[in-house]
Simulated assay, not measured.
Amino acid sequence: MKIYDFVMKDAQGQEVSLGDYQGKVLLIVNTATRCGLTPQYEELQQLYDRYADQGLEILDFPCNQFREQAPESSSEIAQVCQMKFGTKFKIFDKVEVNGENTAPLYAYLKSEKPEDRGNHVFKDLLLKLASIGEKREGSDIKWNFTKFLVNREGEVVARFAPSVQPFEIENDIRALL
């Protein structure tokens, strides 16, 4: 199985083949509109503005699994992000990233890169405190705004912790473009 084999629904419910993104560098992010990390949308959009013409695509997968911080419908989430943060990148339908209903795409991403990169001890401690009482196992996504970087050949090359700001991975993105 490759990343290009997956078909996902976008925020409007239309099926999108990830094969449409062959030859692009992908940054795949699980997001939430009511999370303390939501301001990362600003940096994500700035990265998209800088590098979309060189082949960067950001794929946004809202997720309501972490303290129900994405309660809106997928289309409402897309509207909020476009109005509040000026997002122009693709926003998909809400997914589950952990548990028995994990979206197959996220099961694949986690199997390819089970560990987060990024050493942000204080920020990561705050995330752990925020998720007390929520069961996490091995490669599970720890929180909103976990980022997966995929090269032009469709290989998952890195996974970044939620506390890693988008600008902190700009050099990783540039190296793949």
Rank of each mutant, 00 (worst) to 15 (best):
V29Y: 14
K94A: 05
L59M: 05
K84Q: 15
A70Q: 10
Q45C: 08
L47I: 00
K110I: 03
I58D: 12
K24Q: 15
N101I: 06
P104M: 11
E57A: 14
C35V: 09
L44N: 07
D53P: 04
F92H: 04
P104K: 06
V29E: 14
E96I: 01
Y41W: 08
L109I: 06
Q69V: 13
V95Y: 08
V97H: 10
L47H: 03
M83I: 11
E72F: 05
Q65L: 05
Y51S: 05
D93G: 02
L105T: 02
K24G: 10
N30F: 06
P62I: 03
S74A: 15
L27F: 00
E96H: 11
D53Y: 03
R50N: 11
C63W: 00
S75Y: 07
F61C: 08
Q79N: 13
L27N: 00
K88Q: 15
N64R: 03
P39K: 05
L37M: 11
I58P: 01
F61E: 03
R50P: 02
L47N: 01
Y41P: 12
P39N: 13
S73A: 11
N64L: 01
Q69I: 07
I58K: 01
D60I: 00
Q65F: 09
E68S: 09
Y48M: 01
E57N: 11
L44P: 11
C63Q: 09
Q79E: 15
D60E: 01
A32G: 15
D49G: 02
M83Y: 08
M83C: 09
Y41T: 14
E76I: 00
Q79D: 15
N101C: 13
V29G: 13
I77Y: 11
P71H: 08
N64Y: 03
L105S: 04
T38Q: 11
G86C: 08
N101K: 14
K24W: 14
Q54G: 01
Y41N: 09
K90N: 13
P62D: 07
K24I: 07
G86E: 13
R67N: 12
V25G: 08
E43H: 08
Q45V: 02
N30C: 11
Y48F: 14
P39M: 01
Q54E: 14
A32R: 03
A52Y: 06
N98C: 11
D60G: 03
K110L: 02
S74V: 07
A78P: 02
I77P: 10
F92V: 07
N64H: 00
N64T: 00
Q45R: 08
A70M: 00
I91G: 01
R67G: 05
A78V: 01
S75R: 12
T31I: 02
L47R: 00
L59W: 00
Y108L: 03
N98H: 09
M83H: 01
E42A: 07
D49A: 13
R67Q: 13
Q82H: 15
